[in-house]
Every structure is written in structure tokens, then in C-alpha cells.
Amino acid sequence: MEAFTTHTGRAVPLRRGNVDTDQIIPAHWLKKVTRNGFEDGLFEAWRKDESFVLNAPERKGATVLVAGPDFGTGSSREHAVWALQNYGFKTVLSSRFADIFRGNSLKNGLLTVVLPQEVIEQLWKLTEADPTAEVTVDLVAREVRAEGVTAPFELDDNARWRLLEGLDDISLTLGNEADIAAFESRRPSHKPSTVRA
């Protein structure tokens, strides 16, 4: 996983709440068997509308998505995270994320930042008025900064450490092999097995 320390970039203000993963990446894109090539599927239906914010020329190259509450609801598809990353987003800001989406994003190094809705509103106003305005997401200081905005955010120490170091969860877990083996050896025999009797 790519490490995340601090990132500064232009933003896309997405004034919508309840953006479900079917909107982020529609189901027909899920047939791909790779982790890349999803950029054209990102918000596919909405992008057909020329006035959709992502289509504005001045938003090209933006890397910070500022979204409404309940971002990433619905399906568990990690493709939603890959689509955002493939498109070029490094971080998503919202007042509330769906749990599975949040977990997926942090595992892939896409930093999802929870901020109060007032701060989101401020960032919307700022970046709508000035598309060149930059937003900094500083994971070291756990702070979001932009002109007139300094907002702390929370992320638990463990998740932060893994992001800062770009650590692979599986290697970390395999470091606890002895614990897993010990658990397996005391697991009751009545537990289900997929092997046919």
C-alpha cells in the first residue's frame, strides 16, 4: 500500500448526500478482474450530464473530493475505492462515511477524513468560489487546512500508523501466526466445515 503523510491539491465539491457505491462505480464495471482501469466508470451516470461538477474543465487534476454526508453507502465493492484512486483522488472528506467503504479506503491508502458538516460547507463555498483553491490534508498533524479553514480530524492511532508507514495488513497479521495456530487448536469440533463428510 502507498503511504499517506500529507497531501495538498485542488478539490471537487460534491454537493450530494447519500452517494452510494452504485453511483461511484456502477455494477457493470465490476466484471473486471483487475484493480485498475476503473477511472472512466467513476460516477459514470452523473458524468453524462455536462453540468456535473467533475466535468468542469477547471476541476481537471483535482485530487481532493469534498462530499456530502453518508458517502459510500450500499455495496461492499472495493472497486469504488479503486475507481476514486484510478481517477486521481487521494483523499475524500465527508461528515459521515459508510463503514465498509471507510474500511476499504483505509486499506488502500485512500484517506477518508471525517469532518463536521459546517467545515464541509466551508470547503464547498471556498472551492466553488475559487476552483484553484488548494486543500491540504495533513495526516501527521491530523488536520485539514485551506484558506480560512483549519480543522482537526480524528483517526485512530493504529489506522494512522499503518497509513503513514504504508503497511500491508496481511504481513502484520501473519506476524501473529502463533496466536492464530493456538486459536485453531482450541476451536471446538462442532464448528462447521465446508468439506463434505
Binding site: 461492499s76 472497486h79 475505492v81 465498509i100 476499504n104 486499506k107 495488513d169 496481511i170 501473519l174
Partner: peptide, 11 residues
Amino acid sequence: GTSQVEHVLAT
């Protein structure tokens, strides 16, 4: 998610 699927498969 898929990263977790991989994690469960491996561990």
C-alpha cells in the same frame, strides 16, 4: 471488501 477477502484467505 476485497482487501479483507485476501486477508481472510491468507490468514
